[in-house]
Design a protein around this nucleic acid. Structure first.
Length: 871
RNA sequence: GGGAGCAUAGCUCAGCUGGUUCAGAGCAUCUGCCUUACAAGCAGAGGGUCCGCGGUUCGAACCCGUGUGCUCCCACCA
């Protein structure tokens, strides 16, 4: 078989993903094995794969694939979220491009378009995950608006309503004037804005020409003012008690009220009170029984109630009114002012606080078990710093505004009769039953269903339950087996939106936590630390990256740069490193394949040092990987495997067992080498599934697949063997370094004489050492070899002889450098040991180790000095 | 305004219970090699005020205080 120069990813990826699918490796059904379950955070149904998904899903795939190798029955559930507001916005835009206005459509017509859109684009993101190599159980794919899921959401609503946890009420909400819907507090982002603070004077209603000046960043709302408020102890305004003033331009007469809410220092110490457009003003209004004048329409234009500028946009009016106030003589001044402005997380529109009738979910009761579960570590957060954040939010939780003035989503199962009475039930039939009890002879036509749909998170919070058909059968076998799930992998940005609410739903509806542990990944940023976003155009096209570089390489590049708990600065340079790694492994495989034809059972097989050592190294790394993965330190685990394969296996091991030019290969060594390579591939497989599976099958004919191969117990590594390996590496490096420094060409043959107490070590590694340093003879000696390069390694003295002239000055310098270092080292150790306080206070083992350092250093110094004296 | 986190090589980051096996890794840089797996490679090397200051300690990158700079979260001061 002809092997290509480098690893060809495209073909391998298609082949193996299909093969894994055909073999059914991704599918899970309950059995006697323990389950390891992850539910994927469902991406937006109309979304396309971006770097965040790549990170998130690679992490999950690594956990799943590794758990599978460890004998768990793994189940990773895919699916998509209907993403109410985001999807509706996209559909509205799509229709607009077609020249269709949503307002001209009936609800049914709009939903028909929306479903068409979902069918067309809804599967794209899941298909893209296949390209990444994600081992998802596709038979379990769910969508949060599937019929059964829809019903579960409705049932939960009815259940909570009947328990009294859901109610309808008028409150100040966050209004998105672009999407024309209410939003929850979590859907509002606060952004720093450069605003203007406008000072406006209101004429006092009195005989004299007197004014009171207020400061505001929203002059366009003055038509909604129903009072001016000052601090009761503010002497400047004490004389205005009981007085009134006039709102400029419209001349509404409003009271001057007194409240210690006011900050005397801010602005002029006088506040215009606009209860309809500010939450604080609203509260003030309630306290002082002020009228509410709502001067804005739903879309952010001025309403009839404003009297002037009717129909004009709020931001246009903000500028215009300043001009008009100047003309009327009410304008005082304007200054620059930085403040926080709330914007819609989805549309980016500036939020209007707005008084309106909405549905609310009382969170307090549900929050308490959910808070406790995380605080007492029944649910573990990684990194644990997010516990603080969670506690703070849960401890200050407010009622959740769950109604949205949208069509795409679960429609609220509430009906109203002509008198405004509310009937809540799973469906129209049941509602009618309720209605008929009070209104004999009525029909469903007497009732009108609420137009609103539920917040998308009101469905996603059921995800870990409902993907196992919880609502159809609340104690079904699968739910018992897979739930609670094991690990949730998600971004910290949705800790409140989703994670907290899933925990609440888990306890409220199932009486159990939804997951054992939550791993919060970092946020992906570009090299300069900027968040990746469409606007900045700094987010690479993931599919293109996979196409060009291969899924393994992309996975590698994302994982190698993502320390646990920190943001990821993504640099495409990592792609190069990943690609090189694939090729390194590919070429190692080619080397091994080259030996295949040269295998002979005749070759002596007593030289097993390399094999023994490599096996211990694998054990060692396996142990550290296990520890690292427990703490989700995936990038470090990957670095360990990377180095194990590149450095230990390719750079050392393969060189150590490599037969001489055109020499036969020991059958035993050959087979062990393949065993070893397979172990390495298995360790790496969860991170880079395709290239490892491909090489696994090329190394030798296999009856199984790497993906389904089980990890065997590795055991404790032999420390002595490991340190011998390290010593051999140091020896080789030191001699190579000496060769370079003495201008010995790689082809120049040397002779090595060793003065050591550990002859057995040299005997067992002699063959390897000879090849690695190109020595034709290695012998033992008790005295210096004249005319040689002398080196000191530990307390061993090495003498390198060759027919090339030796530069004694250079070596002398090197030895002197070593000597200085050792002397300095010894001094610091002896200083410590002669310090009475140290000897009195330090732990005995520390003192012991210092003594050892002392004697080692003394021995080394003696050795170096002896060598030096010969030069 | 409240809270959290971070600051170590040119860059990205490890460094766990304080102790020269602690000052590290990868990338980048420099030097020498087209050596028959791999130049997308091999063999070597250089590179640091562990953010500043103070303290605790026999001993501090690590603990405490403080200052500076950055990041994030929460919050109803116009």
């Amino acid at each position: 078989m002809e092997l290509s120069k480098n690893f060809q990813h495209n073909e391998a990826e298609q082949k193996w993903y299909q093969h894994w699918m055909d073999k059914g490796y991704f599918y899970s059904t309950p059995d006697e094995r323990p389950a390891y379950t992850i539910v994927m955070p469902p991406p937006n149904v109309t979304g396309v794969l971006h770097m965040g998904h790549a990170l998130n899903n690679t992490v999950q795939d690594i956990l799943i694939r590794r758990a599978k190798m460890q004998g768990f029955n793994t189940c990773w559930v895919p699916g998509t979220d209907h993403a109410s507001i985001a999807t509706e916005a996209k559909v509205v835009n799509m229709l607009k491009e077609k020249g269709i206005d949503k307002n001209d459509l009936s609800r049914e017509e709009f939903l028909k378009y929306a479903w068409e859109w979902k069918e067309k684009y809804g599967g794209i993101i899941l298909a893209q995950l296949k390209k990444m190599g994600c081992s998802l159980d596709w038979n379990r794919t769910h969508f949060t608006m599937d019929d059964a899921y829809y019903k579960a959401v409705i049932d939960v609503f009815v259940n909570l309503y009947n328990k009294g946890n859901i109610y309808r009420g008028v409150k100040m909400i966050n209004w998105d004037p672009q999407a024309l819907t209410a939003l929850s507090d979590e859907e509002v982002l606060h952004k720093e804005a450069n605003s203007k603070l406008t000072y406006i004077q209101y004429k006092i209603d009195s005989e004299t020409e007197e004014y009171i000046t207020i400061a505001t960043v929203r002059p366009e709302t003055i038509m909604g003012d129903t009072a001016v408020c000052v601090h009761p102890e503010d002497e400047r305004y004490a004389h205005l008690k009981g007085k009134f003033c006039f709102v400029p331009l419209i001349n509404r007469r409003i009271p001057i009220i007194f409240d210690d809410y006011i900050d005397k220092e801010f602005g002029t110490g006088a506040l215009k009170v606009t209860p309809a457009h500010d939450i604080n003003d609203y509260n003030l209004g309630l306290k002082h029984k002020l009228a509410v004048v709502d001067t804005l329409n739903e879309n952010g234009t001025m309403s009839e109630a404003a009297q002037i500028y009717v129909g004009h946009d709020r931001f246009v009016v903000r500028k215009q009114i300043v001009e008009d106030l100047k003309a009327s003589g009410n304008f005082v001044k304007q200054e620059d002012y930085n403040n926080q402005v709330g914007v819609s997380e989805r549309t980016g529109a500036v939020i209007e606080p707005r008084l309106s009738m909405q549905w609310w979910c009382d969170m307090e009761k549900m929050a308490s078990p959910a808070l406790e579960a995380v605080m007492n570590e029944e649910i573990d957060f990684y990194p644990s710093k997010f516990k603080n954040l969670y506690r703070h939010w849960m401890g200050n939780i407010k009622d959740w505004c769950i109604s949205r003035q949208l069509w795409w989503g679960q429609r609220i199962p509430a009906w109203y009769d002509t008198e405004g009475n509310i009937y809540v039930a799973e469906n129209a039939d049941k509602v009618l039953e309720q209605y008929l009890q009070k209104n004999a002879g009525g029909t469903i036509a007497d009732l009108r269903q609420d137009d609103d749909v539920l917040d998308t998170w009101f469905s996603s919070w059921l995800w870990p339950l409902q993907v196992f058909e919880w609502n159809e059968n609340r104690d079904n076998k699968e739910l018992d087996y897979y739930y609670p799930t094991n690990t949730l992998v998600t971004g910290p940005d949705i800790i409140f939106f989703w994670v907290a609410r899933m925990v609440m739903a888990g306890y409220e509806f199932k009486g159990k936590k939804p997951f054992e542990q939550v791993y919060f990944t970092g946020i992906i940023r570009d090299k300069q630390g900027r968040k990746m976003s469409k606007q900045l155009g700094n987010s690479p096209d993931l599919l293109e990256l996979i196409e060009q570089h291969g899924a393994d390489t992309v996975r590698f590049s994302v994982m190698i740069s993502s320390p646990a708990g920190n943001d990821i600065l993504y640099d495409e340079a990592f792609l190069e490193q990943g690609r090189n790694f694939c090729n390194k492994m590919w070429n190692a495989m080619k080397l091994v394949k080259m030996w295949e034809g040269r295998v002979s059972t005749e070759v002596s097989t007593d030289d097993t040092f390399a094999i023994d050592w490599m096996q211990e190294r694998i054990k060692q790394v396996e142990l550290s990987i296990e520890e690292l993965l427990k703490d989700f330190r995936l990038s470090e685990a990957l670095k360990n495997i990377y180095s194990l394969i590149w450095d230990d296996f390719c750079s050392w091991y393969l060189e150590w067992v490599k037969p001489g030019f055109e020499q036969p290969m020991s059958a035993m060594v050959y087979n062990k080498t393949i065993d070893i390579y397979e172990s390495l591939l298995q360790l790496l497989h969860p991170f880079m599934p395709f290239v490892t599976e491909e090489i696994y099958h090329l190394l030798r004919k296999q009856s199984d697949d790497l993906m389904s191969r089980q990890l065997t117990a590795f055991g404790t590594p032999n420390a002595e063997l490991l340190s011998e390996g390290t010593k051999l590496q140091e020896l080789i490096t030191a001699i190579r370094d000496a060769r370079v420094k003495n201008n010995l060409k790689p082809k120049d043959v040397i002779e090595l004489a060793v003065d050591t107490k550990e002859e057995s070590f040299y005997t067992s590694t002699k063959n390897i050492l000879g090849r690695q340093i190109n020595a034709e003879e290695i012998s033992f000696t008790n005295e210096a070899v004249q005319g040689s390069i002398s080196l000191v390694l530990g307390v061993d003295k090495l003498y390198i002889s060759s027919n090339v002239a030796i530069d004694t000055a250079a070596q002398k310098e090197q030895l002197q450098k070593d000597l200085d270092y050792q002397k300095g080292f010894l001094m610091s150790v002896e200083k410590k040991l002669s310090n009475e306080k140290f000897v009195a206070n330090a732990k005995p083992e520390v003192i012991e180790s210092e003594r050892k350092k002392q004697s080692d250093a003394l021995a080394k110094i003696k050795t170096i000095e002896e060598s030096l004296s010969l030069l």
